[in-house]
């Protein structure tokens, strides 16, 4: 069964112009898609994330700062250069182009979710998501792309920050923000970003 999946993944790849899949990435592909496109709800999309970000997450799983029953053993199969080979491979795939919405295009957002995304809620010291995650959540530096990510995954992560089963953020910045979000806001934000494609 696993072999079949790998063979299938290789077949898909051979038709594309992307880099060849490193052998160590084959296992990842079974839940994340052979081109990192994501398999909802098994595994989030990896395409569109930076190589640095993916590599850092693998290490966070390995050290238990991100707790996930599947990913902890899976991440341990990657050691040394394999971490970067896998990260480079999955980050090389393109994702749909999203025309970014820039701050300042609007002063007033009627939708409270959009207001959180583009202006935040500073009465609760929640900054705009796009400050760190980039315009329309396209991702920047160490901050992952949110646009087009699976809603179920974003929701699980925000809850993981709240439950302290995910950490590794600089000075707990993301954890502190997630702690302030209501469950309704988490649902709405997850849906909002997932639909930005």
């Amino acid at each position: 069964m696993k072999r079949g999946l790998i063979a299938c993944a290789l077949l898909v790849l051979s038709a594309s112009s992307y880099a060849a899949m490193p052998p160590s990435a084959a296992l990842c592909g079974s839940c994340h898609g052979s081109q990192g496109q994501g398999v909802d709800p098994l595994g989030p999309r990896l395409a569109g994330l930076s190589s640095d970000y993916i590599a850092k997450q693998i290490k966070l799983f390995q050290t238990g700062k991100r707790q996930n029953a599947t990913m902890q053993p899976m991440s341990m199969t990657l050691q040394g250069d394999a971490v970067y080979a896998v990260a480079d491979y999955f980050s090389s795939f393109d994702v749909p182009i999203v025309t970014p919405h820039l701050r300042g295009e609007k002063a007033v957002y009627e939708d409270p979710t959009e207001q959180l995304v583009y202006q935040g809620d500073w009465q609760r010291v929640i900054p705009a998501c796009v400050t760190c995650h980039g315009p329309s959540g396209l991702g920047v530096g160490e901050f992952p792309r949110l646009a087009g990510q699976q809603a179920s995954y974003i929701k699980n992560q925000l809850m993981a920050w709240q439950k302290d089963t995910r950490s590794g953020d600089q000075d707990g910045v993301m954890g502190a923000i997630a702690d302030k979000l209501t469950s309704a806001e988490i649902d709405a934000l997850s849906k909002y970003f997932a639909e930005l494609k």
Binding site: L102, T131, C132, G134, L138, G141, E142, Q170
Partner: peptide, 22 residues
């Protein structure tokens, strides 16, 4: 320890879609 992850090792910040929000 505290600033580099957002502002970069070289202090030049990060850009996405032409915007340096960092």
């Amino acid at each position: 320890a505290h600033c580099q992850s957002c502002h970069g090792a070289d202090g030049q910040g990060y850009e996405s879609a032409g915007v340096y929000s960092l």
